[in-house]
Design a protein around this nucleic acid. Sequence first.
DNA 1: CGGCAATTTGAAGGCGCTCAAAAGTAGTGG
DNA 2: CCACTACTTTTGAGCGCCTTCAAATTGCCG
Lengths: 209, 209
Amino acid sequence: MPFGQHGIFCPELTRVSARTSGMPSTFFPAGAEIYAQGDTKGGLYQVEFGAVRIYRLLADGRRQISAFHLAGEIFGLQDGSTHHFFAEAICATAIRVMRTTSLDGDLAGELLPVALRSLVRAQEHLLVLGRQNAIERVAAFLIDICDRQGGLRQIELPMSRADIGDYLGLSIETVSRVFSRLRQKGVIRLPSLRSVEIVKPQALEDLVA
Amino acid sequence: MPFGQHGIFCPELTRVSARTSGMPSTFFPAGAEIYAQGDTKGGLYQVEFGAVRIYRLLADGRRQISAFHLAGEIFGLQDGSTHHFFAEAICATAIRVMRTTSLDGDLAGELLPVALRSLVRAQEHLLVLGRQNAIERVAAFLIDICDRQGGLRQIELPMSRADIGDYLGLSIETVSRVFSRLRQKGVIRLPSLRSVEIVKPQALEDLVA
DNA sequence: CGGCAATTTGAAGGCGCTCAAAAGTAGTGG
DNA sequence: CCACTACTTTTGAGCGCCTTCAAATTGCCG
């Protein structure tokens, strides 16, 4: 099976996406692997709906999520012939696949901007992980997700606290404590476990300095 | 002046590099700025000799070095029209410049591998900053520099402890303490301040897991 | 309603940071 | 050659933030 053992081909989505790009879509339930470290499947992926986590593991199980990808975003670029990371669906997710063969053609010029955006993102994330404390990291995360969801004050988080912790280099407990602290300060509200309302955007901005 | 206020044009180097690429070189003394955050100078840079640090600053002065670039390596790729980072010469350094105009032509296809290598590097660095402790970070750093200097056991560090700290997300003191600890364990020797001899490579490898 | 997983909250400890001072290094000029 | 200065690096002591371990609570789905 081309796109991970849990990948389920979805004819309806195929037809939908075919109208826009001519490429088929694949559906992944929550937790399904899209590709693994060492996989040789080349290609580029676009999130149609849902969310994806890109991560790496240490031998003892420590995990670092290097990026989340939301609807519309492109991922899967690789250096060399094999993937260096894992990609998993965070929730029910549809992925549009662009074949490697087409990359050699006209798309080559469009690939560079994608790579550069990812690079800038990763480098900015380095600043967060290297030089910011827990509350600053969470603030940066919320601002980032907010912007990528259209800038509305109401945020829907597809990922768990564990995912957020592994993205921000924090423990689950610390993430939870920071959320509580921001709530107590009146900076955010938590209408439900996976949604956040930003009450004082400026307070968040001030935290990331 | 095209490449930072401290850039010194060096005719002799120009002639040398012209033989290989037809592009001129610029010399930068230690600490000289190559480009700054917000600069609109496009273009690609190659280190001829010396070393470069790429970094970002927080409002209160905290600094995160996202990458070091040694002789032969290419840097300066940017998303959009302005640089998002600072680039400085760490020591006496010569930089070969490739003009933006030439990038639009034949080089476009060669740019993608450069961007992808940087991306993979940054993402691997995220794992170090997010999920590894002090001794593991230093071990990863030494292995990386060692590989990039040809894999010899003797390493020459162009950068200060402060630079290493700002690259690894550690304080100067912690970097120094870890070096001492590795020396006491017999893993490395420190023939001088800026050189490291790796006595037990396997011990270092084991640390990064 | 019951069971399981995710999240929250609490308590204690450790790793790395800050502050401080000593030791080492390099450059300069007498 | 040596004295002097300025800077980097090393080492020490104490503290604080985050982690770990543990338990309570909440939310979800059958």
